[in-house]
């Protein structure tokens, strides 16, 4: 395939992915808006007003970046895991496997779909948050880089999960038992300074801590960890996830007999 043909193949996969999540928007776009509104009302307005400041900001200002990141992580992940596993389950993935579309184009197509859903949900959640607080952007570049890298990383993670999954249970186990606890313990609702030093140290093994803090730095200008280190971790994990996804596609693991 020449570059033009590869671009057409990429656009075809991406268009298909976007149409899929737009078609079922009550399942893909609406829940995040409702859930985050509830978080803003309960944790931000009701409970948050009694907590006072955290990290030098009102509790509402403090949690908003973490909640936006939480929406990006879950949506990027779930878009790719459900779409690619669905294609595997109904065998329509064979349409791609028999075609001359290179594996990296297939991967980029699915992952870009996840990234776009993540960014769209981030926009929705950010808009909702503006009804509850004023958002100041400390560093626009850090915000954009953080959002794109995070959605890319978790879209790739969703792809890996989908490749290994054999049933619909398998695509909900990781989000429920791994992703959600890591998000909740990743400093979305609290600063690591509140933890005893041992648990603060343990928390730094959680990759979500770097995701949340990199974004929080971009918005508020404060973070519990070094922003440079957080981006290095994010970048490293993304490269590793991409390389592993390519390995899975090239070797045909769980896709070819």
């Amino acid at each position: 395939m020449n570059t033009q043909e590869k671009l057409i193949a990429f656009k075809t996969i991406l268009r298909k992915e976007i149409r899929r999540f737009i078609r079922i928007w009550p399942q893909t776009l609406l829940p995040s808006a409702i859930t985050m509104s509830l978080y803003f009302v309960i944790f931000g307005s009701l409970i948050g007003s009694r907590i006072g400041e955290m990290g030098g900001f009102s509790y509402m200002e403090f949690v908003v970046p973490g909640l936006i990141m939480m929406a990006i992580v879950t949506n990027s992940y779930s878009n790719v895991v459900s779409s690619f596993f669905g294609a595997k389950f109904n065998h329509s993935v064979e349409e791609l496997l028999v075609s001359p579309t290179p594996n990296y184009v297939i991967l980029l197509g699915f992952v870009s779909g996840g990234v776009i859903r993540g960014l769209l949900v981030a926009t929705i959640v950010t808009t909702v948050s503006m009804f509850f607080t004023r958002l100041h952007i400390h560093s626009f570049g850090v915000v954009v880089a953080g959002v794109v890298l995070t959605s890319l990383l978790f879209a790739l993670a969703g792809f890996i999960n989908a490749v290994y999954a054999n049933s619909f249970d398998d695509i909900s186990i990781i989000p429920t038992f791994v992703l959600t606890p890591l998000i909740y313990l990743g400093g979305v609702f609290y600063s690591l300074d509140l933890l005893p030093s041992f648990w603060a140290g343990v928390s730094k093994l959680n990759p979500l801590v770097y995701v949340v803090n990199a974004f929080r730095y971009g918005v508020l200008g404060v973070a519990d960890v070094s922003v440079a280190f957080a981006f290095a971790m994010l970048g490293g994990f993304t490269v590793a996830a991409f390389a592993y996804s390519m390995y899975l596609l090239n070797s045909g693991t769980r896709l070819r007999q």
């Binding site: 033009q4 109904n90 329509s92 349409e95 579309t101």
Partner: peptide, 21 residues
């Protein structure tokens, strides 16, 4: 049968063409 049952007939065929560039 190995196509997405929830896609329209026309889309199934044109998407396949897209995968061939």
């Amino acid at each position: 049968f190995n196509f997405n049952m929830f896609e329209k007939v026309f889309d199934i065929v044109t998407n396949q063409a897209g995968f061939y560039g």
